[in-house]
Design a binder for these strands. Structure first.
Length: 666
RNA sequence: GCGCCCGUAGCUCAGUUGGAUAGAGCAACGGAUUUCUAAUCCGUAGGUCGCAGGUUCGAGUCCUGCCGGGCGCGCCA
């Protein structure tokens, strides 16, 4: 089903083509900027007149003569330098509304595409062994919205959570688990907790820090040798982990991981050494390099390494899954396809690029020099795919992922949702892929899109952080939003049962955070403000949810007023849109498909929120002016239908496409 | 130094291949309530779209220069 806009575009384009004898013409139909000019305006005639060096108004007259839109619009008017203004007939609006109403598929009359494209969306992508923080918010929810909308339009969507589960943090993670094990062995108090505090406290004093680190090193060395000399503490500990309570372990692990990182940072340049075993030989190595050594050691003892790694990976995903569920984001474990997945595919990436002559050695590293990129000195800028020490980088992994998605996942389109700072990386990635011919399958070009977004800022205009300068945990942020929403519900509707209040608080709090993000232009930074996003006035989630709740309230009241909504709407065949607010609302309802189309075309959720907000405003105006249940019997079915379609549209847009929960009562 | 993004009302932001007199919300001011939830609606006021040129019938939008801010720039992701 074409949107009204598409129909007009087609008809006017055809009329223009007929007038000038061309094959096709762009009518450039847009919603009018001002209601006085009608509902739609065609701007294409003026551009064409310029091309033909003819009078635009005259050309417009000829086009209008050829134009037949009498089934949709009042007679077209020519205005200004050559605009064609179009005003929809109320009868046509009626036809559209009845058509939408007749669709019992919950799709509001919007048909799925006839040209489905396999769409891979790469989003969220947190790191293993770390808590999700506010920096992950935008990728996660913008990506989710893109998936939901694309899926709704009928395209198969493959979600890819490209988690950071491979790399240098490897050794530290395992060392963290090792400390957890030893702390349990030593009993309460868990030393890493108290020592982490100590490390922070004495950070300013080299002398105290040295004393502390030496003490830690001594115990560490002792545990280390006992463990290796037959007591066998760590291996059984690892084996036992899987049977234990996940929630508690995650908290412990986060702490011990911080401890390992803080300790390693403190050790830098201190000159402390630790005794360890290498190939059966005892040797002393710098204490701060122990985690790197462990990576190597454990890589030789496959089993233990993998167990530890798998366990932390599972713990992290458990945590992320909790955040996704809280956020209403449709990402599950099956969508996880992280860096480790591509590990064994990396040598081939480098090899193939070398074989084709694209990759060359430069200062010991293996690089591709894509066309059009320069360093600050004006030299060709390398896309490094292998470091001089032989390690691979995210450039390599991204190439491997791209190739996998094209060839194995059969992507027709790959969408990457990351912050704008990575723009150059993706430009280079796409260029390299294109040059290597990896962005094609069966000769068909795969569309590569980098969807960027700006930063979330604090009230001070700096990237949002805690007072002490740390990243704000997503969990804390969401909990606070729900907490604040709860106190609003408490204030506005104290008589609701507690579980009802909690449900509303969750919907409003989480919805507010998401909606605030969606309603901003994704390319700009935005200032995070609980007060603004939870306000009941303005373009906010609570305002939208309230509009919905009011409609549901009418439905609840109907019976007590002796109105049978189902009966009045059954087989409804005519509407009376004589009140201005009715017609205005009706026209807007008929344009939902256009809003979705514009939002998806450039991956901009704010076009959708803008539509929904206007819808809620128009509904509120209608609601204020037009009684529904108390309306004269002749007017009532129309108004009931307007209410029902508004509720369905808000629910669909908010809940299905943006993943924001609606509630029947607020 | 080079590259990318941004600069729109007091504040936060929209502005869809260049279209009509640049729009919302918040804050301010004035009105509307025997309520289908006022968590609302209606109205008033508020802008040389950073500055200066240029292209065009028409520029917030495109081009050039400048000013101001953010981000990125060979072995992190």
């Amino acid at each position: 089903m074409k949107t009204v806009l598409e129909v007009l575009e087609e008809r006017i384009g055809a009329a223009m083509a007929a007038v000038v004898g061309a094959n096709e013409c762009a009518a450039i139909v847009r919603p009018t900027a001002d209601a006085r000019f009608g509902d739609y305006q065609a701007n294409g005639v003026m551009a064409m007149a310029k091309q033909l060096k003819t009078n635009p108004r005259k050309l417009a007259e000829q086009v209008v003569e050829r134009l037949d839109v009498a089934d949709l619009c009042e007679p077209p008017e020519i205005a200004g330098p050559g605009f064609i203004n179009l005003r929809l007939k109320p009868d046509y609006v009626t036809v559209q509304l009845l058509r939408i109403n007749a669709d019992d598929s919950e799709r509001l009359g919007i048909e799925p595409t006839t040209k489905p494209r396999n769409t891979v969306v790469d989003f969220s992508s947190p790191n293993i062994a770390k808590e999700m923080h506010v920096g992950h918010l935008r990728s996660t929810i913008i990506g989710d919205a893109i998936c939901r909308i694309t899926e709704f339009l009928g395209h198969p969507v493959i979600r890819q959570n490209h988690i950071g589960d491979w790399g240098t943090q490897f050794g530290r993670v395992i060392l963290g688990l090792w400390h957890m094990c030893m702390a349990e062995k030593h009993g309460e108090p868990l030393y890493y907790r108290t020592e982490l505090d100590e490390l922070r406290r004495v950070a300013g004093s080299n002398q105290d820090l040295r004393t502390l680190c030496t003490r830690i090193r001594d115990r560490h060395e002792d545990d280390w040798s006992k463990d290796r000399e037959g007591e066998q503490r760590f291996a059984p500990f690892l084996e036992g982990l899987n049977d234990r309570d996940v929630e508690g372990l995650w908290e412990q692990f986060l702490c011990v991981y911080q401890y390992v990182n803080a300790l390693e940072d403190a050790l830098a340049g201190m000159g402390l050494t630790v005794r360890t075993i290498n190939q059966g030989q005892e040797e002393a190595i710098p204490y701060e390099s122990l985690s790197r050594r462990i990576t190597v050691m454990l890589q030789r003892q496959d089993r233990q390494e993998l167990d530890a790694w798998q366990f932390i990976r599972r713990l992290t995903l458990e945590h992320c899954g909790g955040i996704y569920r809280k956020l209403g984001v449709q990402l599950i474990d099956a969508d996880v396809c992280g860096e480790s997945f591509y590990n064994d595919k990396l040598p081939a990436i480098v090899g193939d690029l070398q074989a084709s002559g694209l990759a060359v050695e430069s200062d010991g590293a293996t690089c591709v020099f894509p066309e059009g990129f320069k360093t600050k000195e004006g030299q060709p800028l390398p896309f490094i795919i292998r470091k001089s020490d032989g390690a691979y980088l995210y450039a390599t992994t991204d190439l491997a992922a791209l190739r996998y998605r094209v060839n194995e996942l059969k992507a027709d389109r790959i969408v990457y949702v990351t912050d704008a700072r990575q723009i150059q990386h993706f430009q280079m990635l796409f260029k390299v892929a294109e040059t290597a011919g990896w962005d094609r399958r069966d000769g068909e070009k795969v569309e590569l899109a980098h969807v960027t977004f700006g930063s979330v800022l604090g009230e001070d205009g700096r990237p949002l952080k805690t007072r002490s300068g740390e990243n704000i945990k997503l969990k804390d942020l969401l909990d606070e939003a729900v907490e604040r929403a709860k106190s609003v519900v408490e204030e506005k509707n104290p008589d609701l049962p507690p579980e009802r209040k909690a449900e509303i608080a969750r919907a409003v709090g989480i919805g507010a955070v998401k909606y605030a993000d969606y309603s901003n232009n994704r390319t700009s930074d935005y200032v995070f403000s609980f007060d603004k996003m939870l306000a009941m006035e303005g373009n906010t989630a609570p305002y939208m949810q309230y509009a919905y709740a009011r409609i549901k309230s009418i439905e609840r009241k109907a019976e007590s007023k002796g109105v049978d909504i189902a009966k009045e709407l059954h087989g409804i065949a005519a509407l009376d849109l004589s009140e201005p607010t009715e017609l205005d609302l009706g026209k807007h309802l008929a344009r939902y498909a256009e809003a979705i189309e514009s939002a998806v075309a450039d991956y901009r959720p704010n076009y959708l929120t803008a539509y929904l907000y206007e819808l809620a405003q128009k509904f509120s105006a209608f609601y204020t002016n037009c009684p529904v249940l108390d309306a004269p019997a002749a007017k009532r079915p129309t108004r009931l239908l307007l209410c029902d379609l508004t509720a369905r549209t808000i629910r669909h847009g908010l809940s299905e496409l943006l993943g924001i929960t609606v509630v029947d009562q607020m």
